[in-house]
Design a protein around this nucleic acid. Structure first.
Length: 179
DNA sequence: CTCTAGATAAACT
DNA sequence: GTTTATCTAGAGT
């Protein structure tokens, strides 16, 4: 059973290997990133705004944001102002639907923007609780060996090793640094 | 492999 | 009014 109300890096670790379903489409979480409350790289760093309001919602709810004007990214909310970005999943359910949404591209859900597109996420899904109609998140825990590395695509607090991945899994968005 | 365009909301000056 | 942002696809080297 997943504990949403815990330290955000712990939640990011526990989410690796969990099964994520959005309206019957989804698969196993392969890669995540943690974003904290006092974290210069986090949207919540400058306090509550209209954009990040869902990030201050209940633990276990959804935070969605539009990145670079064209990519919807899916996050799982933990404690207030903290969230975990889902960067990659292994497609297992509704693969046909994903293929269709992705326009037949090969990489169905390796990368946060691709995950959002494959699952058909919308900004209006922000605030929805996992467990509510159409949204499921189960399993997880620290069953698998984890890879750890710096986060991708940020300009602040680059040194924090808050990116996590499933060791040996194909379909990661970017390789992890060799240990 | 590197480079660049694309597209938009929100924060910032 | 200007700049930035948790990125991707496609073209070029």
């Amino acid at each position: 059973m997943l504990i949403f109300d815990q330290e955000i890096t712990g939640l990011a670790r526990d989410l690796i290997g969990a099964r994520l379903l959005v309206r019957g489409v989804g698969g196993t979480v392969l890669e995540t990133e943690a974003y904290g409350r006092d974290d210069p790289a986090s949207h919540s760093f400058r306090g509550l705004t209209a954009r990040n309001a869902a990030m201050f919602g209940p633990a276990g709810s959804v935070y969605v944001y539009l990145s670079y004007g064209c990519h919807l990214c899916l996050n799982v909310v933990g404690r207030p102002g903290e969230a975990v970005l889902i960067r990659a999943i292994r497609p297992e359910f509704g693969i046909e639907a994903m293929r269709e949404r992705r326009g037949g591209a090969g990489l169905l859900a390796a990368g946060p923007g691709r995950v959002g597109q494959a699952l058909g996420i919308g900004l209006s899904d922000g605030g929805t609780l996992f467990g509510a109609e159409g949204f499921a998140l189960e399993g997880g825990g620290r069953a698998t060996e984890l890879l750890v590395g710096p986060r991708i695509g940020i300009t602040r607090a680059v040194e924090r090793p808050w990116r996590f991945g499933m060791a040996g899994a194909p379909g990661l968005s970017h390789p992890f640094p060799a240990r």
